[in-house]
């Protein structure tokens, strides 16, 4: 599936599980998340488990270029987020 446009949700449509949602992130000079605004609160990132980049569908009109981070937050929750390099925004799954 491609982008998550801001179209109103029709009640009888096929939906995505884990659709990306916008997220506020504070990152350091290297682009690594330090704090994320998750469930109404700013939470400190305790650990970055993994970091990888995906470039996909560059042959279509809607290419994807993302930098993924698998995080462990201060409250013990894991969280997968990515930086959309084309849209210059942070998103969370």
């Amino acid at each position: 599936m491609l982008k998550a446009p801001g179209r109103p949700h029709h009640p009888d449509t096929v939906r995505r599980l884990s659709a990306p949602q916008p997220l506020r992130v504070e990152a350091d000079a290297y682009g690594t998340p330090r704090r994320v605004h998750h469930r109404g609160l700013w939470r400190v990132v305790m650990q970055v488990h993994d970091r990888y980049r995906t470039d996909d569908r560059w042959w279509t009109e809607e290419p994807i270029s993302r930098e993924y981070f698998e995080l462990l937050l201060e409250d013990g929750r894991p969280l997968t987020i990515y930086y959309d390099r084309l849209g210059s925004r942070w998103q969370a799954h």
Binding site: M1, A4, T60
Partner: peptide, 20 residues
């Protein structure tokens, strides 16, 4: 008919929707 919340490019998603 069934619409996708976001456009799809894979036939697998279409097959699942077709089943419904």
């Amino acid at each position: 008919r069934l619409s996708f919340e976001s456009p799809v490019v894979t036939s697998e998603a279409l097959i699942m929707a077709a089943r419904q």
